[in-house]
Design a protein around this nucleic acid. Sequence first.
DNA 1: TCCCGACCATAAAACATTTTCCTTCATAAT
DNA 2: ATTATGAAGGAAAATGTTTTATGGTCGGGA
Lengths: 359, 359
Amino acid sequence: MVGIKDVARKAGVSISTVSNVLNGKRYVSPVLAERVRSAAVELSYEANPIAQQMKSKHSGIIGVITGDMYGVFYPYVVKGIDEVATQRGYQVLLSDARSVYGNQSAEKYELELFRQYINNRVDGIIFASVVSKERSANYCEKLKKLADKYKKTPIVSLERDFSGYGIDSVYFDGYENSSIAVQHLYDCGCRKICHISGPDHMEIVEERIEGYLDTMKKNGLRVNTRKMIVKGNYSHQGGYRAMKELLENVPDLDGVFCGNDQMAVGALKVLKEYGRRVPEEIRLIGYDDIFISSIVEPSLSTIHIKKRHAGIEAARVLFDRIENQDSGKSVCKILMDGRLVVRRSTVASAPEDWILSEW
Amino acid sequence: MVGIKDVARKAGVSISTVSNVLNGKRYVSPVLAERVRSAAVELSYEANPIAQQMKSKHSGIIGVITGDMYGVFYPYVVKGIDEVATQRGYQVLLSDARSVYGNQSAEKYELELFRQYINNRVDGIIFASVVSKERSANYCEKLKKLADKYKKTPIVSLERDFSGYGIDSVYFDGYENSSIAVQHLYDCGCRKICHISGPDHMEIVEERIEGYLDTMKKNGLRVNTRKMIVKGNYSHQGGYRAMKELLENVPDLDGVFCGNDQMAVGALKVLKEYGRRVPEEIRLIGYDDIFISSIVEPSLSTIHIKKRHAGIEAARVLFDRIENQDSGKSVCKILMDGRLVVRRSTVASAPEDWILSEW
DNA sequence: TCCCGACCATAAAACATTTTCCTTCATAAT
DNA sequence: ATTATGAAGGAAAATGTTTTATGGTCGGGA
């Protein structure tokens, strides 16, 4: 194990001079500097990051807490984060908060991960929280206190707007996007539009329901919330079950807005099994724009969510905070917009686009 | 910042006694132990992992180097690793070696990540290497030297068999699996079976080609390698292009074995566009068993690869090494088998299974 | 009574750095 | 010639632990 003192000995200088040369903190005469540098190279010295962290208090590591790493959503977000982190020379400590325990304790586990990251002195944390809307205020306070335990560790909320609680947030405009989706169905001629929503008590689910309801109202359409809104669980199986229920509840429906694409895929299966023609008879639109959506037949209209881009933005915000601590104290909130992608589940003549898509 | 000395002061004992109580290394009289413990709780003391690493030389972190974190394969593997790591109280440092730079430098970047991880004193590394078969020997030597730079850091190769170079390996039996796939096509009556393969110079690609070729030969079928094997690039677009080429080369083909499911999905699109009936006229089989395969129509027969399970196994092997260093020096190799999944792209009457699948 | 060992607890070293505070020496100013 | 100034580099402190070596106390056997 070659340490800084070996370099110092070899170069015939003091330890601090080696440190200064290698970190460029202070002026060292060219001749000494050169001696140090060549000694370091010769011994193939590499500083021990652990020891550096000990003093300098920063680790070159950021923590990321998400759900479903194996799913269709977060991996893209993480990819965006990873890109920026790599570019800036940081490492990423990644954990899936929702996979290990049941949903009830997901919040607890999330907090535990947070604590572990902070204890490991990460330089920042990006997290997609599962906490319910009601508990948010409390929870955010806890997080902030934790984040400042040893040093002011910047944190960025992903997918949830916690800017009201003083936490930088990068999130999607679920209300607006849902409105766009439903409006598109209306514009296509649908008048009896139903909604397959996600699990209870999730903010992103509620936004979408509100977007749906308001757009219906705006267009003068009545909604029987009991019958026309059915809960799925964001999985294709959930969508499958929900669609069956919907067909019983509202046999004459002519449009369905699904809370995500996975459920839409399940719903589509049902419609095909039942021989209901899509889009002629029933139009279907999803949310997220996952790869499968461009593949299924008919291809699925949806709202394209900038997943990777959101990761990039979140990482940018984080690194801005990390790199100039001084930067204005005003909380940063970035609202990512979505984009309507029209495919054949709403417009029969829409072009195929799967061959183009990057994913 | 409350440190161990604060606890010591509060409990009225020495620093080392606090350490001994909290780590249970040495016997400490119950009365003192209790005093220490309650002092620690009262001050809500948590040891600084960085400082601990400094002495004890182990970090509670493992490094994972993969490709395509946002793809359809590695996320599942990573999930398996994450599960085991979490259960054992370790954290996961994750990087995608292939996303940032072009393919040429992927190997270099992979090595760089390896170096960074080692410098960060991770306790072990699981990696899926991109190195070519020819360069493997050399590369593995480099890795091993790097791994032992500071301490004997266990490393496990995923997806590649480096056991010959003394590296524990968990990998898939690509040759056998491909043989099964091709044999299945033969058993279904196909006699002119083509292959859409992956990029050049990749070991996993070559295995599959060999499995294909040998099975063809075994069944007395001739292969014109120029025409009947076409390179895709493991993407759906690649599969799309390759299938078109294949239809020109071999108009009377009656079966296609695709190197992965993504390409198979692309190939399927072509067949549908051209009005070739699947499976009656042309049978199609993929490899990997990704989610989409159960969704497309007709659903795609494939070889199910135990992705998550492989991650679990790799993590197990790693932690075994980490936790008892003494453990026999014999290299560990685990060959994960695959399973034929028959769907409608080869057998029209196959049952639908998408609703069952877990993913 | 003395000595030895067993048993606890402590002081101090060690880990590999960064950083603060000095020292030294040359140069310029008086 | 003497003193002030400032630049350059070194000694040592500090970081928060674990571990090693040491010390002190007490009981029992000679």
